[in-house]
């Protein structure tokens, strides 16, 4: 049932993301204690685990959040050393983080924000800036796909957005900026079933042979709508189990405790 990471090495395609022995934390406290993970284009990986297991730390370290420290290990994104890049460069190179708690930006209009972000990534890809009309059309299309009103463009970024609106807005940005690797940090938390479906549809729209998704979640509920290729269980900063979709269902039935005990027993051996 429980497969090891190495089983996936059969995949001959170029990996988009490779983590080797990643140890990281905050203020000298280690949270990730040696994480190995390989993600290929076309794949969706779900990272599951109980609260405090290091799931959010993992995606935030990958996106380059300044508070986090890396103590050991390597991370390669498309063959390049990801950890040496500042966060804005990672983003322009195609790494996108959908935040669990998107911050409010007073006075910064959504339209200006989206425009600046799109200009930055397009310029990096050698594309011309979009004309105002084309930009408007594109943004409105993406808003519509996420069930958001065009009135949002006049609002300040995330200011006064409901929990569900914030999450939809994150996925809307994912579709607009069209990165290569999406890191989704508990994008399903706090959503009612209708909002969850919209968000899941957005993620599925993003999926494709030249895209990869790392989806962090506490519950397997979203996996009913976004079907993962691989499921990994993170406990105490280590991946203790990896498998296919069936692993998520097993977790739903049995909880995390049996894996924690198995992992501890494994370490004692």
């Amino acid at each position: 049932m429980v497969r090891r990471e190495t089983d996936m090495a059969e995949n001959k395609r170029e990996p988009v993301l490779v983590l080797r022995g990643l140890r990281a934390g905050i203020g000298g406290v280690e949270i990730l204690r040696g994480v190995d993970l390989t993600v290929h284009l076309g794949e969706v990986h779900a990272i599951m685990g109980p609260n405090g297991s290091g799931k959010s730390t993992l995606v935030n370290v990958l996106a380059g959040k300044p508070d986090y420290e890396v103590y050991a290990g390597e991370v390669y994104y498309r063959g390049r050393d990801l950890l040496s890049m500042p966060p804005d460069e990672r983003a322009r190179e195609g790494v996108f983080l959908a935040f669990q708690y998107p911050v409010e930006l007073p006075g910064v209009r959504l339209r200006e924000f989206l425009r600046a972000a799109l200009d930055a990534v397009r310029e990096h890809r050698g594309l011309e800036k979009l004309a105002v009309r084309d930009f408007n059309r594109l943004v409105q299309e993406k808003l519509r796909e996420m069930g958001m009103d065009a009135e949002f463009l006049k609002r300040n970024v995330n200011e006064g957005f409901s929990g569900g609106e914030k999450k939809r807005h994150e996925i809307m940005q994912l579709l607009l900026l069209d990165p290569t690797l999406a890191l989704l940090d508990e994008t399903d938390s706090g959503l009612d079933i209708d909002a969850l479906k919209v968000v899941a549809q957005g993620i599925n729209r993003f999926r494709g042979p030249d895209k990869a998704v790392v989806l962090v979640t506490h519950y397997q509920r979203i996996l009913n709508y976004v079907q993962p290729d691989y499921v990994h269980v993170l406990i105490d900063g280590r991946i203790v189990a990896s498998g296919g979709r069936e692993l998520a269902q097993e977790l739903e039935a049995k909880g995390y405790e049996w894996l924690r005990q198995a992992a501890e027993a494994g370490r004692r051996d």
Binding site: K65, R90, F96, V103, P106, A116
Partner: peptide, 26 residues
């Protein structure tokens, strides 16, 4: 806040531009 700067930078916006946007918003 670092949170605000990181949010903007995680969208590809440079630190300088991110800071400018926050000040402009202010």
């Amino acid at each position: 806040s670092d949170e605000q700067l990181f949010y903007l930078m995680s969208r590809g916006i440079s630190e300088e531009e991110a800071q400018y946007m926050i000040v402009h918003g202010f």
